[in-house]
Every structure is written in structure tokens, then in C-alpha cells.
Design a protein around this nucleic acid. Sequence first.
DNA 1: TTTGTAAATAGTAACTATTCCTATTTAATT
DNA 2: AATTAAATAGGAATAGTTACTATTTACAAA
Lengths: 121, 121
Amino acid sequence: MRYSYQREIIREIICSTKSHPTADWVYSEAKKKIDNISLGTVYRNLKTLEEIGSIQIIYDENLIRYDGNTEEHHHLKCSECGVLIDTNIKSNFDEKDIVSKYNFKPEKTKFFIIGKCNKHK
Amino acid sequence: MRYSYQREIIREIICSTKSHPTADWVYSEAKKKIDNISLGTVYRNLKTLEEIGSIQIIYDENLIRYDGNTEEHHHLKCSECGVLIDTNIKSNFDEKDIVSKYNFKPEKTKFFIIGKCNKHK
DNA sequence: TTTGTAAATAGTAACTATTCCTATTTAATT
DNA sequence: AATTAAATAGGAATAGTTACTATTTACAAA
């Protein structure tokens, strides 16, 4: 893939925050560094970066957010303020049970634990 | 709340399928029974039905789907065909660990297990 | 170094899903 | 039957995302 300064800036923006930003936020941050960057460029590169495994997409209810942490990991979501917190909790369910009972072969998991963060309990 | 024939039809459509339909599918099914029903009416009533607890919203990646099963339950999602399968698997994680380590009070969980369904392995 | 080129971009138009608006209709009460 | 507030149909508006196209750019080969 050919180098692109725009793509590099977008990658840096996502990888230097833990706030799981949306495309729009990435766009407004990117504009601070490249004032005429196009929103289409942001969307296209978010897609590309996700495809090559540099970032991850998080579907947070009806919001699409991006995460520089590309490890499989799960999230805590505050029902008050919406903050998304990375965790390293392990998902443990009975894989054999799922295979036999539902005739389904698990590959990966996406878990959300919804509750109250330290600011809102 | 005042009775509405449209709302009742919409509820029946959702509660008589396990396909986790989208608003658009509900709309096209509803039109078979009420030919001039409005899409706005479908959206408004989906929201209302969710608020009064008659149905559940499922955020399936970038798709918003509806579920007549209002129990807390989790889903298997086929990465090939996208089919969503209800499960009664129990989510077990160390709640104490989350409380202490992340200073977060869990209330409910939303789990997706992604993999291959019986048609696609 | 120039030159050729395909890939990437900026800017804008188009599209899709959802919500909003308003005149009309309807459920429920009197 | 008359009243009234809630709900509806139909259409306009909005938001988020993707598509289009002329221009620019990275990079390879001469």
C-alpha cells in the first residue's frame, strides 16, 4: 500500500487516545493538522486501517467508534455518561456447550458490561 | 397509553419471529396488514414498545434489530450469513474483580459470540 | 532529475436510516 | 353525539456515511 500522510495522521490520532473516538471526532482532530483534509478521506482511511488491522471498530449501540487497541478485549460502558473503558477480563463460557447445543463454532467474542463508572454510582 | 391498532400489529410481527428483524422489514410486513401504514409510525412504535418493555433493541454491528424476547439473553452471530441466534448461556465474569479493578458497578451484560453457524462451517 | 502511472485526495453530490413536522383521524371520555 | 388529546399518514428534514470525479501525489523506471 502506498504511503499517505493523511492516513498516518488518522492512525496517530486514534492510537494516541483511549477515548474510542467517532469518525467525526477524528475528522475534527485531523483538521487541526491538515486543514483541508476531507471527511471522505477520514472515512476511507478508517476503513483501510481497520482492514489492515491497525485499528479496531467498536459498535457501541448506534455509535461507530474506533480503537487503537487491536488486541481482543472487552468493554465496560457507563449507562450514565457513556464512557467506554477497556478491560482485560477473560470471556469464559462453555464452548463445548455452544458447539453441541447450538451447533455453532465460536471464533471470537464481543462483550459489553453495562453499569456505573466511578463518577456515576 | 391509548390503544393503537398499528402498534398492536407491529408488536405481533416482532413477537412472532425469531429473525430479529430491522425496522424496514417490520415496515414491509406491517404494510401487508395495513396498506397505508407510515414508516414514521413504525419507528415511533418500535421506540414506544421498547420503552414499555414489550420488545428489545439489539445493536448488531451497524444494524438496529428488534427482538420479541425481552429476557436478558445473549446472541451467537454467524460471520458468514449474519444470522443471529438466541442463547440462554450465562455470562460469568468475576464481578468483584470488575468492581475493584475498574471501580465499576456492573448492571447488565450484552454478549455476542461470533463464529460459524451450522450452515457455514 | 524528469516522466509516467496508478493510488490517494479534496470537495461535493448522493444515499440511507431515522427523526421531525403538521394537518387529519381516532380512541376514549363525557 | 360532542369533546379532546393522542396517534397517524405523508412528507420534509437531518445525520452519518458512501460514491463520484477532477486534481494531486507517491513512487518506480528511464
